[in-house]
């Protein structure tokens, strides 16, 4: 126990406390105490305001898409003849790193990339445009790219959940005259609740800390339009050379992640009575 506590203290708590401390100091050469000066930039800097909007979009997208798609794919591929192949296709992207996924999508989404070439070939050239250049479209396509990768793990979890549902419950429903939709709505879905809690919880945190895909695809650009809080934190600290501002973003992001996770899990676990 003691070594674990020591390690957590040294590698997690001390840097976190130091980050909070640093966020109250300015980024001038002398780094004077500036109270909440770094935090007021959330109001005065349009790039940070946009970053918060983008982060919210990422959270909604990374929660909804893997949840809905994961559940749909798991239900469709559970116990069908081609289910193994279908599952493999969906799960495979999950094994790739975020950076590798970004490289693949970069090949697809640049103005002279694969998507626009296909559209032009199909006579839909008017739809072709710079997918990564205009906001909010660029953020939306990156959320889709992320969902392409993240859905795999949701599928695995939902399949585990589906296979743990006792067949007797479905048979009883069928004997009572319940149709497929009714069985899904009233028998399957309630029994998948614990899995859904895990999928949503994981997606929530992943959405809030999304970084690698964005960094490789756009580096938060053009013009800082696609930054999320995690990217802004990196940008301010290492590129704009403002460690105080970066620390303030890190603190805000941490508070949001902790608050969202705590509120969500507390509510879900309370409902379940655990």
């Amino acid at each position: 126990m003691a070594p674990a506590v020591l390690l957590v203290t040294v590698f997690l708590l001390v840097p976190f406390v130091w980050t909070i401390y640093r966020s109250f100091f300015s980024d001038s050469r002398t780094s004077g105490f500036s109270w909440f000066g770094n935090y007021t930039r959330f109001v005065s800097d349009p790039a940070l305001s946009r970053s918060i909007v983008n982060t919210a979009m990422w959270v909604v997208g990374t929660v909804l898409l893997p949840l809905v798609l994961g559940l749909a794919i798991a239900c469709m591929t559970n116990a069908t003849r081609w289910s193994r192949l279908a599952r493999l296709c969906v799960v495979l992207p999950y094994a790739l790193s975020g950076s590798a996924v970004a490289v693949v999508w970069n090949f697809m989404l640049t103005t002279d990339g694969a998507v626009n070439q296909v559209l032009t070939t199909l006579g839909l050239g008017s739809l072709a445009h710079g997918w990564l250049l205009t906001w909010p479209g660029n953020t939306l396509v990156m959320i889709l790219a992320n969902a392409w990768q993240a859905t795999g793990v949701a599928v695995i979890l939902f399949l585990v959940g589906l296979q743990s549902i006792p067949p007797e419950t479905l048979e009883a429903g069928a004997l009572d005259g319940a149709g497929s939709w009714q069985q899904f709505r009233h028998i399957v879905l309630p029994q998948l609740r614990p899995i859904s809690i895990i999928v949503i919880g994981m997606s929530l945190v992943n959405g809030l800390k999304s970084f690698d895909l964005i960094w490789v695809l756009t580096q938060g650009g053009p013009g800082r339009a696609t930054e999320t809080l995690a990217v802004s934190m990196y940008n301010e600290t290492f590129l704009e050379l403002r460690p105080g501002a970066g620390a303030a973003i890190a603190v805000v992001l941490t508070v949001i992640v902790l608050a969202a996770s705590w509120l969500y899990l507390r509510r879900q676990l309370d409902v379940k009575g655990e």
Partner: peptide
Amino acid sequence: PPSLIQGNADDLGGFMAGQT
């Protein structure tokens, strides 16, 4: 100064993308 150049490069990137 580096912070000025970095920020202005971001703005110019936004201009190139038609944002401003």
